[in-house]
């Protein structure tokens, strides 16, 4: 099976069952959304895929390769890049050097990697700020920088953790357009955690919904927003 396959993964932190027997597929070239209320286990799921944590149970494979137990850098080398929900720029480095570090993963030559970095920054509308130190960026720009840096590693699968939070609707539309474009042009697979429903509805072909660490629904965006279980966890019982 190609793409990302998540089968029955669980993760417990002391008393808290953060993720419980979650399974889903992210087919190659797919655009998949992962949604759910706060504390649903979305970011933990990302961290399990990205190698920050090892699942207590279950298995994660990517293009047939087992990811369980790999370190984050090995997961990256396997072709999976991620962004951080709480952005982690290399604050004292310039915007360009931030992306350069990502590019150096795929392109060991510094001059060539720098060219790739500039090209990515241009596509994301950060080129004008490329000589600023990353610490001076605004939050939406830092989110963009997270995406740029991850793309620098030339991943096959991109994990986006709430990169559109805090963006204005027009900026959301630009980002959505951008992701759709790179998905179409380069065939990159995208799995995104997102609270901005405008983005999820426009972008995702398929949505997985988590609540209290468990998968409660999945389907097309239209199916999911009509699902009673999803409505209940988002809006409360009375609304159903």
């Amino acid at each position: 099976m190609s793409g990302l396959v998540v089968r029955g993964i669980s993760k417990r932190f002391r008393g808290l069952q953060a993720v419980k027997a979650v399974s889903f597929d992210v087919p190659e070239r797919g655009l998949i959304g992962l949604i759910g209320p706060n504390g649903a286990g979305k970011t933990t799921t990302f961290n399990l895929i990205a190698g920050v944590f090892t699942p207590d149970e279950g298995e994660i494979t990517f293009n047939g390769r087992r990811l369980n137990g790999m370190r984050p850098d090995q997961v990256c080398a396997a072709g999976i890049a991620r962004t951080f929900q709480i952005v982690r720029p290399f604050g004292e480095l310039t915007v360009e050097d931030n992306v350069l570090v990502g590019c150096l993963h795929a392109e060991p030559d510094v001059t060539a990697a720098r060219r790739s970095a500039v090209a990515i920054l241009e596509r994301l509308g950060l080129a004008a700020k490329r000589n600023q130190v990353a610490a001076s960026l605004t939050l939406p720009d830092r989110k963009r920088l997270e995406v740029a840096r991850a793309l620098g590693t030339k991943p096959k699968l991109l994990l986006l953790d709430e990169v559109m939070a805090g963006l204005r609707p027009t900026e959301v539309d630009l980002m959505v357009g951008f992701f759709r474009e790179i998905n179409r042009d380069t065939g990159i697979t995208i799995l995104l955690i997102e609270h901005v429903m405008r983005a999820v509805m426009a972008l995702a072909q398929h949505v997985v919904v988590l609540n209290h660490g468990e998968k409660i629904a999945e389907g097309t965006p239209e199916q999911v927003v009509r699902d009673p279980a999803v409505l209940e966890c988002y809006l409360g019982e009375e609304a159903v």
Binding site: R71, P72, R88, P89, F90, E92, G102, A150, G152, T153
Partner: peptide, 15 residues
Amino acid sequence: LAIREDQEAAQALGI
């Protein structure tokens, strides 16, 4: 420099 600035982010970039 990436490790100095943020080790976890550096590791996520394959370092």
